[in-house]
Simulated assay, not measured.
Amino acid sequence: MPDLAAWAWALLAVAAVIVGLSKTAIPGATTVSVAVFASLLPARQSTGALLVLLLVADLFAVTAYRRHADVRALVRLAPAVVAGLLLGAVFLAFASDGWVKRTIGVLLLVVIAITLLRRRAQAAVTGGIHPVATATYGALGGFTTMVANAAGPVMSMYFLAARFDVKRFLGTAAWFFFLVNLTKLPFSIGLGLLTPPELLLDLVLVPLVVVGALGGRWLAGRLNQTVFDRLVIVFTIVGAVYLLL
């Protein structure tokens, strides 16, 4: 178990609640948890510990929104996501903690800028998005989720660009991350990111993830589309900037 001060445990507890909340109400907020874990634990260790918490929250999200997933969107994303996962695994095998943090921060800010420009120009239309954009977002999503569990903001930007409504957004994201995180599990174990100390930490924090997931389920039914979109963008920017600093 990590030897942390009381204030550090308090921050990890808040981050665990945010993990649950982000999966059932506010996608993109996970980046805040990524930043907290990466600042209190070695970056590689934080990636392994956070993966288990994300999987627990994914189960709640899939159960809550299983009927709202866009299966065709998931199929279109799959090839690029797999390529990104493999590239991320190679990167992790050689990159230092510092490079991991900075790389993810830069990628997130680039994705945010591109998505906002597309929305301003009304390049994205309801029900569809260009195949090149799909491949780009998918590859970035696979890479960032493998390296730092930070694909939430990337894929949030994709779903916003594709003009998904709240329920379709949450349902598709739930299945996407559940399947991707399951795929990442053997990679994380093989790279030494998930070891007994991280599992002990997760045992302490899992109940807080459940609290956040249940709270997010209550909140999601009360968010209108405009507020939802703005919250996603704000949390994405805050998390990306924190990783860079």
Rank of each mutant, 00 (worst) to 15 (best):
A8N: 02
A83S: 13
G221N: 06
V17Y: 03
F177Y: 15
D229P: 00
A16Q: 05
G171I: 03
G142F: 11
Q45F: 11
S46C: 11
G192N: 12
T226C: 05
V234I: 14
L59K: 01
L219E: 02
A162Y: 10
F235Y: 13
R76V: 00
Y242H: 10
L54G: 15
V19C: 07
P42H: 07
G141M: 06
A139H: 07
L219H: 02
V82Q: 07
V81W: 12
A83Q: 04
G88H: 13
V100T: 09
G216N: 10
F228N: 05
T47S: 14
T134F: 01
A8C: 00
F143C: 09
L243M: 05
R67L: 14
A220N: 08
A135G: 14
L200R: 15
F37Q: 00
L117S: 13
Q225C: 01
T195E: 15
D70R: 15
D70F: 02
L205R: 13
A113W: 12
G171T: 01
L208C: 11
L170N: 03
L54D: 11
P2N: 04
V111K: 04
D202C: 15
A220T: 13
L219I: 00
L231M: 15
Y158H: 08
R72T: 02
A5M: 02
V52W: 12
M1A: 13
A49R: 08
D70I: 02
L193G: 07
L107N: 03
G221T: 05
L77I: 04
L140R: 10
G48W: 08
S39W: 11
V206Y: 06
A240H: 08
V106A: 15
P42V: 00
L40G: 03
A61K: 01
R119C: 05
I233W: 04
A57E: 13
R76D: 15
Y242P: 02
G105D: 10
A64P: 09
W175V: 15
P196S: 06
L203K: 08
V36E: 06
V125S: 12
V75R: 15
I189A: 15
T115P: 06
F177C: 01
A161S: 14
L54Y: 11
F94N: 09
L11R: 02
L86P: 10
V34A: 09
F187M: 14
G98N: 09
A80E: 12
L53A: 12
L109D: 06
L203F: 07
A133T: 07
H68G: 02
L55I: 15
F228E: 04
Y158G: 03
G48E: 10
A8K: 04
Y65P: 06
R118K: 11
L194M: 12
W9G: 00
W9M: 05
A6S: 11
L108H: 03
A174D: 13
I26M: 09
L203I: 06
V154N: 05
P153E: 05
F159M: 12
R118V: 01
L54A: 11
F60K: 11
G142D: 13
